[in-house]
């Protein structure tokens, strides 16, 4: 059976371009607005959507995503509600892959097995859990794969050739290459080095390799798209949203549009690079 993730990468390949993967935080700045944003993303050009599971202590994230998580928690967002938002998104969109991204403790607390069942039923396609390296595969990765959810792994500049096979062993969907050593939303990577890293990873896996961290504009997206199968953008979208909130961190009439405007620019960036000859 072809998964939604496989089908979506196949579609991008046919169109001769890289995929655009967007990240927003569930419940930021409130559940309804975050759902509206999520629904608007594919229409604005996103191919895959990542939905952040808020956590009080996101130790791999920069200020933008930290603040987004705290905004969501402040209005009462939790894992139950996040799965409900995914279910409602799925009612109107049967094809766009949804990836939940976050940290292990909320999943651990929800109850791993119950979480996997509920996530799959809600229409989740994959998981990215930042604080679960291959050394902890028993915790969630293997049970998730068994439950039919892709467990998407992060590869980083510190993942050398010796370690790559272990990182790629129990993974599915795609590989997420973290373009810098650092946290989200900070430094912009050296795109030449990123392309070389992607090439190195692709020697070890047939899976698509997407690149994230530090991608902020259409031009960045185009630069990354030249060397990768997909481009991930998160903090820049959250910054765009944050810029429209009122003094009490509430959504305004401009909030959804601010995000979609940037997504359109990113989408144009990704689509400006033809990958047909490489395919």
């Amino acid at each position: 059976m072809t998964t939604r993730i496989e089908a979506r990468f196949e579609k991008c390949r046919r169109e001769g371009r890289a995929a655009l993967v967007t990240y927003v935080m569930a419940g930021d700045p409130d559940p309804e607005t975050s759902l509206e944003i999520l629904k608007s993303l594919p229409r604005a050009g996103a191919d895959i959507v990542e939905f952040g599971l808020p956590f009080t202590d996101p130790m791999a994230d920069g200020p933008a995503i930290q603040a987004a998580g705290l905004r969501a928690l402040k209005v009462g967002q939790n894992t139950v509600k996040t799965l409900e938002l995914v279910r409602r998104f799925r009612e109107g969109d049967a094809d766009t892959p949804v990836i939940l991204m976050g940290y292990f403790n909320p999943i651990h607390t929800y109850g791993r097995d119950r979480f996997l069942v509920d996530a799959r039923q809600a229409g989740v396609d994959g998981l990215i859990v930042v604080d679960l390296p291959p050394e902890e595969d028993d915790e969630l990765c293997l049970p998730a794969l068994e439950a039919g959810l892709a467990f998407i792994r992060l590869a980083t500049p510190t993942t050398d050739d010796k370690r790559l096979p272990a990182v790629l062993a129990n993974t599915a969907g795609f590989v997420y290459y973290v373009s810098i050593t650092g946290i989200t939303g900070m430094a912009t990577p050296d795109f030449g080095k990123v392309a070389m890293a992607v090439e190195r990873i692709k020697r070890h896996t047939p899976l698509p390799v997407v690149v994230g961290f530090g991608v902020k504009s259409g031009a960045h997206a185009a630069a990354v798209a030249r060397g990768a199968d997909g481009v991930v953008v998160g903090s820049a979208l959250i910054d765009a949203l944050n810029g429209t909130l009122d003094a009490d961190d509430r959504a305004t009439s401009r909030s959804v549009e601010a995000v979609t405007t940037l997504v359109k620019e990113l989408s144009e960036g990704v689509r400006s690079v033809s990958k047909r000859e490489a395919a």
Binding site: M59, A60, F104, V130, D131, L132, P133, P134, E135, E136, R153, L154, A155, T156, P157, T158, T159, D160, R163, V167, V178, T181, G182
Partner: peptide
């Protein structure tokens, strides 16, 4: 255990 981001795991 070792519940850290991949970037830190080699370190």
């Amino acid at each position: 255990g070792r519940f850290v981001a991949e970037t830190l795991m080699p370190l």
